[in-house]
């Protein structure tokens, strides 16, 4: 564990708490992509199967439980209490285009051709693109509530902090995880456009609005 990774995980945790807070305070899940949230459940469940057979640390154990539990809770809220505030008509990204290629790539690129390793690879690749339905929704509506942008910013910061973590690990432990690094760079790259608008508008006190 190093500071970059710890802060990254903290940002990830914070992003989820911000999202849950947004839903409860605005009594709405408007502007949130159900598809992205469902993909995150798939990501966490397929990656954390090792909860059953590998012990890493108490920290690792509880974080995994939190990510699985909170992502399921978000789906539950979106399908029950806040269902009327959800608009499937604008959440139209075709997730088959993500699930298909991720499955194929996971079958090709994995550290061992075993069910759990293939699922692990799949979860890494899927996480890297799981935000796309959300960004697509944002693009379609052209604007977002400020709290929603804070959620996305925290998620982006989480990914960005994993990059110095890998650099640090390379120099201190000699650890290189090519699958995680490649997917992580792609994932971080997807946030660049968002961050430009977030920094130039939201952090200056303006509303998040995309140029027409």
């Amino acid at each position: 564990m190093n500071l970059f990774r710890f802060l990254g995980d903290t940002a990830h945790l914070a992003s989820i708490l911000v999202l849950i807070h947004k839903m409860h305070t605005t009594k709405s899940c408007r502007g949130i992509s159900f598809k992205t949230q469902a993909l995150y459940v798939a990501v966490f469940v397929t990656r954390y199967l090792d909860l059953f057979y590998r012990w890493v640390s108490l920290y690792n154990f509880f974080m995994k439980l939190f990510f699985i539990g909170s992502s399921c809770y978000i789906l539950f809220l979106m399908k029950t209490k806040f269902r009327p505030t959800q608009d499937p008509a604008i959440d139209t990204f075709r997730i088959e285009y993500l699930l298909g290629p991720c499955t194929v790539i996971a079958l090709i690129f994995n550290y061992k051709f075993s069910p759990t390793e293939i699922l692990w690879s799949f979860s890494i690749f899927l996480e890297s693109v799981a935000i796309l339905p959300q960004l697509f929704l944002l693009q379609r509506t052209g604007e977002a509530e400020t709290i929603t942008t804070h959620y996305l910013a925290a998620l982006g910061i989480y990914r960005a902090l994993y990059i110095p973590n890998w650099i640090y690990r390379y120099f201190t432990e000699g650890v290189v995880d090519p699958i995680a690094i490649t997917a992580g760079l792609v994932q971080t790259g997807l946030y660049i456009d968002f961050f430009y608008v977030y920094v130039t508008k939201v952090l200056q006190g303006q509303k998040f609005e995309l140029p027409a």
Binding site: V56, N60, K112, E117, W120, N165, V176, D177, I179
Partner: peptide, 10 residues
């Protein structure tokens, strides 16, 4: 250690 042996990141 090889990455597949650890997977210690979240």
């Amino acid at each position: 250690p090889a990455a597949e042996e650890t997977h210690d990141e979240l």
